[in-house]
C-alpha cells in the first residue's frame, strides 16, 4: 500500500509539473476558455437566446448553457471536451507509460525494489486519472467563475450537482482513453508506435464511426424517398444503437442528457418527432430521471475501461523485464 502511494505521488508530480502536463493544461485551458468567452464564442449565442426566451426555454438551466452552447464559429465547450480534449489528455498521459520505462531501463530498476509489479501499473493509472480529474475540474470551475461574473446568474443547486456529475463522468471518460493508451504502451515496445495506435483508435471513433454506423443502418434498414415513417425510424434507431458502441457516442449522449435536461436525446427525439416535431421536451427531465437515463452509459464506460485495464494488467504481469 505504501508502495502504491509512493508511485502514485511520483507519477502525479511528474504529470502535473512536467512540460507535458503544463503544455497539455495550457492547451486545454486556452481552447475551452476561448470556446466560451472568445470573440465568437458561446457567450454571444447565449445572449441572443436570452432575448428570445420562448424559443429555447432559456428560463431553465441558464448556467449549464455556458457549457453546452456553441458559438458563431466555435463548437461548444462540451463538444471540445468530448471530441478532442479528454481523449487527447488520456492518450498523452498514457501512451508511453510502460514502454518508455522499459526502453529507458527504469523499469528494471523500479521492479527490483520491494514492490509488487501491479503497484507500478496501478499507480500510473490512478495518477493519470486523478490528473485528468484535476484538469477537468479546474477548467470547469474557471469557466463557471468567469461565467458567473459575466452573465450574473448563479447556478441552482441542481445545476451545481449536474456539473459535479459531469466532472465524474468526464474523468471516467478520460480513464477510458488513458486505459486504451496504457494498453498500447504495454503491448507495443516502441513509444512512437503506441502513440500512433492510440491516435488511430481515436480518429476511427471520431471520423469513421459515423460513416460505419450509417452504413450498418442503411444495410439493415434501407431508406429512400418512398420509405414509410416506420422505416425511417427503424433506420435511425439502428444508427443510434450502433453509435453507442463508440465511447465518444456514449459520452456524448450521457453528457447531453446531463447538461441539457430540456433537450431530447436522439433516441427519445426519434420516438416523439412525428408527434410534436419538437426538439425540446415539454418539461425538463428531473435529476433522478436523468441519472436513471444515463446509468447504463456510465456502467458501460466503466466496464469498457475495466476490460482494457485487465488486458494490459495481464500482459504486464507476464512481461519479461530485460531492457536489451
Amino acid at each position: 500500500m505504501k508502495g502504491l502511494v509512493t508511485v502514485f505521488t511520483k507519477e502525479l508530480t511528474d504529470y502535473l509539473l512536467s512540460w507535458r502536463g503544463i503544455i497539455l493544461f495550457a492547451a486545454v485551458l486556452l481552447t475551452t476558455v476561448f470556446a466560451v468567452f472568445g470573440p465568437s464564442g458561446a457567450l454571444q449565442n447565449i445572449r441572443q437566446a436570452l432575448d428570445t426566451p420562448t424559443q429555447y426555454r432559456v428560463g431553465e438551466f441558464v448556467f449549464l448553457r455556458l457549457f453546452t452552447t456553441s458559438g458563431q464559429g466555435a463548437p461548444s465547450f462540451l463538444y471540445f471536451i468530448t471530441m478532442f480534449l479528454v481523449p487527447i489528455l488520456g492518450i498523452t498521459l498514457g501512451f508511453d507509460a510502460i514502454n518508455n520505462e522499459q526502453n529507458n531501463g527504469t523499469l528494471g530498476r523500479l521492479l527490483s525494489q520491494p514492490i509488487y509489479r501491479d503497484v507500478v501499473f496501478n499507480g500510473k493509472f490512478l495518477a493519470g486519472t486523478v490528473t485528468i480529474g484535476i484538469m477537468l475540474s479546474t477548467i470547469t470551475l474557471l469557466i463557471s467563475g468567469l461565467g458567473l461574473r459575466i452573465i450574473g446568474v448563479p447556478p441552482s443547486s441542481e445545476e451545481a450537482f449536474r456539473i459535479f456529475l459531469f466532472l465524474v463522468l468526464g474523468t471516467l471518460y478520460g480513464a477510458f482513453w488513458l486505459g486504451l493508451a496504457m494498453l498500447f504502451s504495454v503491448l507495443l515496445r516502441r513509444v512512437a508506435t503506441s502513440a500512433l495506435a492510440s491516435i488511430a483508435v481515436w480518429v476511427f471513433f471520431i471520423f469513421f464511426m459515423t460513416m460505419i454506423t450509417g452504413f450498418i443502418a442503411n444495410t439493415i434498414a434501407p431508406v429512400d424517398a418512398a420509405s414509410s415513417q416506420q422505416e425511417v425510424m427503424r433506420n435511425l434507431r439502428i444508427h443510434v444503437s450502433a453509435m453507442r458502441a463508440s465511447p465518444i457516442g456514449l459520452f456524448q449522449e450521457a453528457t447531453t442528457v446531463l447538461l441539457v435536461p430540456g433537450a431530447r436525446t436522439m433516441g427519445e427525439y426519434l420516438q416523439l418527432q412525428t408527434a410534436s416535431g419538437a426538439l425540446w421536451m415539454p418539461g425538463a427531465l428531473p435529476l433522478g430521471q436523468t441519472i436513471l437515463t444515463i446509468w447504463p452509459h456510465i456502467v458501460t464506460l466503466i466496464a469498457t475501461t475495466a476490460v482494457l485495464f485487465v488486458i494490459s494488467y495481464a500482459k504486464f504481469m507476464r512481461e519479461e523485464i530485460r531492457s536489451t
Partner: peptide, 18 residues
Amino acid sequence: LQVKRITGYVPERVGFYE
C-alpha cells in the same frame, strides 16, 4: 519481495528518470 528487499540491482543499461 523478500529477495528484493535485501538485494540491490544495477541493470546493464541502467536508467533514471531523466
